[in-house]
Each structure stands twice: as structure tokens, then as C-alpha cells.
Simulated assay, not measured.
Amino acid sequence: MATPLQASVRYYRRAITKVLWVPTIANKNAPTRAELDAGTELSVEVGAMAGWQTTSETVPTPALGSRFTPVVGGAITAADSSLTFWASKDGDDIRQVLVREATGFVVWMDEGDVPAQTMDVFPVTVTSQAKVRELDAAAQIMIQVAITSEPAENVVIPAAATP
């Protein structure tokens, strides 16, 4: 008999997930605690998010000797991605941090900033600061990004530096 999958410990994302903007990471596959601490935590102002996942295409590999067409893994792509923030009436908001053409890393710590848990590191360039204009909603700014290279996924979060 097959071993059953262990039951997951389910959680509600709000107040747990951390999103960081980190201007510089030397190795996206192993960010240091100092690099992460030098970033800006965005979670407190994020009102919505879209994208932030990778997908793999498949490539058909037909053979004359069979009517079945098998496939192999192909190109890996990332969805168009954005973060939507609350706008401030005085303009002192995300527009001061994520300016158009800024390059850096968006770091997702889905289970929180907990050493030994995992994070995803997305190398990005900010492409726009779109003002979301709706009649009956609080003002927001949507930051759209281009994901510039393959994200590092399931990277172990480093421990805090010891004093």
C-alpha cells in the first residue's frame, strides 16, 4: 500500500506572508540575512497581487512509429506580475520606493520570515506605477514588473544574524 500524503497545516495568508523589495542580492539562490534585512518589507501596504508563478510549456515529440504523441518539458515562463498598494493622499507611498525602471528582487516568504522555511526570489524590473481609479474604492497604485530571469524557488530562509 502506498504511503499517504501527510496532511497539510493550512493557514490564512494575511498577517503571515511577507513580501520584500530587495535592491541587491548577489546570489538569488542563496540570499544572505544581511541582504534581506537591507530590503523593504512591502506586506503592510499590499492590497492585492497578481501573477508571481512560473509555468512550464510542453513540446510534442511525435514519432512515425506510434499514433501517440508524447511530450517533454519545454520553456519555463513567468506570468505577468503586479503588486497593488494603497495610495497616500500626500503621495508619500510605494511610488517613492518602486520607481519605474528600478531593478531588484521581490522576495515572497509565504509562510512568514521564518528561518529554515522557504522563499521565492523574483529578479524584476519595475515597468509601471499605474494609478487604479475606481469610484467607490480607496485609491491604489498598481506596480507592474517584468520578471527578468528565472526565479529562485523554494530557497531556504537564512537565520537572523547573532548579535
Rank of each mutant, 00 (worst) to 15 (best):
P23N: 06
A116D: 15
L36D: 01
P62D: 10
K18M: 03
T162E: 07
V97E: 00
D113S: 05
S43H: 07
V19I: 08
G47T: 10
G51M: 02
I147P: 15
A102K: 13
A7R: 09
A130M: 09
E150T: 14
D120H: 12
T118V: 15
M119L: 15
A116S: 15
F105A: 00
A30L: 09
E153L: 15
P60Y: 01
T17D: 11
D90N: 11
P115R: 08
D110L: 14
T103M: 13
A87I: 05
T162F: 04
L83I: 00
F122W: 15
P163V: 00
P158L: 01
M119E: 04
N29F: 04
A137R: 15
G39N: 04
V124M: 08
Y12A: 12
E111R: 13
I25P: 14
Y12G: 13
G47A: 13
E41R: 06
T61R: 02
G39I: 00
A26H: 06
T103G: 01
M49G: 06
L83C: 00
P70L: 03
P60F: 01
A116Y: 15
L98M: 06
V22D: 02
P163A: 03
V99H: 02
E57K: 00
I25V: 13
G74F: 04
A78K: 02
V44Q: 08
V19L: 11
A152K: 10
M1I: 09
G39F: 05
R33C: 08
A26W: 02
E41N: 12
A75N: 04
V22C: 07
G65L: 04
E153V: 13
V126A: 03
R10V: 09
V72R: 00
V156A: 08
T40G: 10
F68E: 11
E101V: 10
A139T: 05
S8A: 14
P151D: 03
A160G: 15
A48F: 11
D136F: 13
T58E: 08
A159Q: 10
A63C: 01
S66V: 02
V99N: 04
S82M: 00
R10A: 11
A79F: 03
A15M: 11
V71Q: 07
D110P: 14
G74W: 02
W21E: 00
T84L: 04
A50W: 04
L135A: 13
D92R: 11
A79Y: 06
V99C: 08
R13V: 12
W108S: 09
L36V: 10
S88R: 13
W21S: 03
M119P: 08
E45V: 10
A30T: 13
I147R: 06
N27G: 05
S81W: 00
F68C: 01
A38K: 14
N154M: 13
V59N: 04
V19N: 03
V97S: 03
S82V: 01
M109Q: 10
T32G: 06
M49K: 11
S149K: 09
I16W: 01
N27H: 11
E35M: 05
P62F: 08
S66Q: 07
A30P: 02
V155C: 10
V145Y: 01
